[in-house]
């Protein structure tokens, strides 16, 4: 009975993880531009790693009886949870910094020029607080609340 439960739970966890992972890969292929692909890849990477590792931890404790393997899987999960979002953030920020302009669903650019994207990426939260860069801050909040929201609504209507 206990074996059956262990088997069922770990099987379900690993299956969910696989669904996450495969759907993320499909998203990486199908999405139209870098930022949407990044969204698909980073979220499913972390989620898939979480579920598969959870299944493996249950397996290693109850089926293989090896605490060491469980600890190693926990460490892998720990590092993945830290490094994958950091890498995604750094990637998005560097892309913006180098002037890659995000687009909405119809392919219309959300910023006017690549210089504007660079400026957006250069603005730092510390600068807003000290009031050094209030102009960029205003632009950025307008961008995130206004244009991006409009783009999202727009894409909802289109699809």
């Amino acid at each position: 009975m206990f074996d059956a439960i262990v088997w069922l739970v770990s099987w379900a966890l690993i299956l969910i993880g696989c669904v996450f992972v495969v759907s993320g890969a499909v998203g990486v292929i199908r999405m139209p531009d870098l930022y949407t692909r990044l969204h698909a890849a980073s979220l499913t990477d972390t989620g898939g790693a979480l579920f598969i590792s959870a299944g493996l931890i249950i397996q290693s404790i109850f089926v293989f009886g090896s605490a060491m393997a469980a600890i190693k899987v926990v460490l892998i999960l720990f590092f993945t949870l830290f490094t994958a979002p950091t890498a995604s953030h750094a990637l998005a920020k560097t892309a913006l910094l180098s002037g890659l302009v995000p687009t909405d669903a119809s392919g219309k650019p959300l910023l006017e020029s690549s210089e504007e994207a660079t400026q957006l990426a250069r603005s730092r939260p510390a600068d807003y607080r000290s009031g050094q860069d209030s102009e960029t801050f205003a632009k950025e909040s307008q961008f995130f609340n206004g244009e991006l929201g409009a783009g999202r609504r727009n894409s909802g209507r289109l699809s």
């Binding site: 990486v28 692909r37 990637l91």
Partner: peptide
Amino acid sequence: FDRLLAVN
């Protein structure tokens, strides 16, 4: 950046 994302 797409390559880098895919590689990561």
